[in-house]
Write a protein that binds this DNA or RNA. Structure first.
Lengths: 109, 109
DNA sequence: ACTAAACATAAGTATTCACTTATATTATAC
DNA sequence: GTATAATATAAGTGAATACTTATGTTTAGT
């Protein structure tokens, strides 16, 4: 892995709010509205953070009506696999209970 | 590993110049003057970057006369071990040839 | 078509960050 | 003790960053 690419991915995760996003995503798909609650920042702020993770190739999205579900991409780089392993999962994200829409599991290809 | 501690270490390595420092340090001990050459930034800038890595517990130092040799700490966190593995080593750092002082190997205990 | 909800984008702002130059510290050489 | 060399610290500056509020876009419901 090129060191510049490495920097890009490291920058993407070197932020506590984005680490929390990933901590939530370790469990399941989560939608934007949940993150607003968990992080205590505004909805646009969440959207911007999610975009950064997406641009780094770490997460991907799926549209469900007016909602947008985010999840980890299946194919992570070795770097990201190692980092994700070290992130403590957060169960505070509860897409199932807060939103009225159902989380579809089985995004494994 | 606590997510705040995780953030601290990730922030410490999420910078191309500091990645290059680590890339050099994968090979051997390196002194400040070498880094100035390799990074093409001023000596104070190098010192400041090295301090960040030191404060994150990633590198340590050793005084040799007026020089200061930096090296990776032996006990890295699992996180850092994974990251260091992904950093491409740089042979551009040549403490042995540029400086007039000898690199002492065997910092393993 | 109109309204409301969920999210994205735009614009503005305060903070953080990484450099610079200038100066202080520490150790060697004379 | 004085000068020089290697490094650290201090102070200042421009760029990047992460939030805010305001507005645009898309979809669902009526």
């Amino acid at each position: 892995m090129d060191n510049s690419l490495l920097e890009k991915q490291l920058k993407a995760v070197a932020d506590l709010n984005r680490i929390k996003l990933l901590a939530c995503l370790k469990n399941s798909e989560v939608c934007v509205c949940d993150f607003v609650d968990v992080l205590g920042i505004s909805q646009p702020a969440v959207s911007q953070q999610l975009r950064k993770l997406k641009e780094a190739g770490i997460i991907t999205e799926r549209k469900v009506g007016t909602w947008k579900h985010y999840r980890l991409v299946e194919e992570q780089t070795p770097l990201m696999m190692g980092i994700l392993e070290q992130i403590e999962p957060m169960s505070t994200c509860k897409c199932e209970t807060d939103c009225t829409h159902v989380v579809v599991q089985g995004n494994k290809g």
